[in-house]
């Protein structure tokens, strides 16, 4: 049996990114319709390192080139025939491997 992996024509494969975190993100609740905000991602001017504010945690990370690129493939079901389509290539990721720093504040209002 063969399952085809179709690639977009030359030069048109977009580059996407991965954000790698330790553990997993658990949302208190996800909205039924519409998006749920996870966190704010900034970059430091000086070091170009990313910083992610995630709920009550600050995560410092860095931009890392993947040792091996990754393909993002989408499984497509057409007329009972399964195939894959390469949607994008991932070459870089933002890696947040350090321990998250908790935000300690006396702010009474909710953020």
């Amino acid at each position: 049996m063969q399952i085809f992996v179709k690639c977009e024509s030359e030069g048109s494969v977009p580059e996407w990114a991965l954000v790698e975190l330790q553990g997993l993100i658990q949302m208190k609740e996800e909205k039924r319709n519409g998006p749920t905000v996870v966190g704010d991602l900034h970059y430091f001017n000086r070091s170009r390192h990313p910083v992610l504010v995630l709920g009550h945690h600050v995560l410092n990370g860095k931009e890392v080139k993947l040792e091996q690129a990754m393909a993002v493939m989408e499984k497509v079901n057409e007329e009972d025939k399964v195939s894959y389509r390469v949607k994008a290539i991932v070459k870089k990721k933002l890696l947040f491997k350090s321990r998250p720093k908790p935000i300690i504040s006396n702010v009474s209002e909710r953020v």
């Binding site: 954000v19 319709n33 430091f44 001017n45 910083v51 690129a69 990754m70 393909a71 989408e74 497509v76």
Partner: peptide, 28 residues
């Protein structure tokens, strides 16, 4: 002032836009 001027807000899209048919594959 130490941050670049763009903030990217990461979000889970609504359920209708989430795609669970995606797979990652390492490439040499």
């Amino acid at each position: 002032s130490e941050l670049t001027e763009t903030t990217q807000v990461l979000q889970f899209p609504g359920p209708d836009q989430q795609n669970h048919n995606l797979r990652l594959m390492l490439l040499d």
